[in-house]
């Protein structure tokens, strides 16, 4: 019992230490211009990719400039269109860009994009001031993928439409978990890479 308790205590201390290291690493990333620039650039790029993959952002010619807002947007924005997707409340055309503004989807995208940006920024810091020779960029990039594939369009998941293949019931069961899985992977990757940064 005492041994177990000791092991458990050691594990808890290790987790706390890892979280503290990660917090410090994140603080370092947002405090350094080069790391912050990487975070911002990657986050903006990922957010654009996420919205595009979710059919909320498209690029085409001849759109002009206009904004269309639905009636009762505060009610409409809470209506679900997918497992974790919600109704857009505005359509914004800016010359070449068409954006469907779904506030909750944008919020989810910003959180994901922030996590992806921090992952890449910490991977960069791990390279320039390593505690060890491990490189975490691959883990962060891989962790960013599931959420990109989690969107639903009309009556099928986007990734299934994209692949154009028949899917089994098992695959259909797994698809709704892609977004939560992506968040967990990004958090796990962040903690892993955070431990590699010399703060």
């Amino acid at each position: 019992m005492a041994e177990s308790s000791t092991a458990s205590g050691r594990w808890r201390r290790a987790v706390r230490r890892r979280i503290r290291d990660t917090s410090r690493a994140v603080g370092l990333a947002v405090g350094r211009f080069d790391a912050l620039a990487i975070t911002a650039l990657v986050a903006v790029g990922y957010l654009a990719g996420y919205l595009w993959a979710a059919n909320l952002l498209s690029v085409r010619s001849g759109l002009g400039v206009s904004v269309t807002v639905v009636d009762e947007p505060l009610v409409r924005m809470l209506e679900r269109t997918g497992q974790l997707q919600f109704e857009p409340v505005a359509l914004v055309d800016l010359w070449l860009v068409r954006l469907l503004v779904s506030p909750i989807d944008v919020l989810v995208g910003v959180v994901l994009a922030g996590l992806v940006g921090l992952n890449l920024a910490l991977a960069y810091l791990a390279l320039v001031q390593p505690r060890s020779c491990g490189i975490g960029a691959g883990a962060g990039a891989a962790a960013s993928l599931p959420a990109l594939l989690s969107g639903t369009a009309c009556c099928a998941p986007v990734i299934v439409i994209a692949l154009g293949v028949q899917v089994s019931g098992t695959v259909l069961t797994v698809l709704p978990w892609l977004l939560p899985l992506g968040v967990v992977l990004l958090l796990g990757s962040l903690v892993y890479v955070g431990g590699l940064v010399e703060t």
Binding site: N55, L148, A162, L163, G164
Partner: peptide, 15 residues
């Protein structure tokens, strides 16, 4: 294009 990119992302060929 969107479909093609997403499909390539997971490296699965079309049926």
């Amino acid at each position: 294009t969107r479909r093609g990119v997403l499909a390539a992302t997971v490296s699965v060929s079309l049926a």
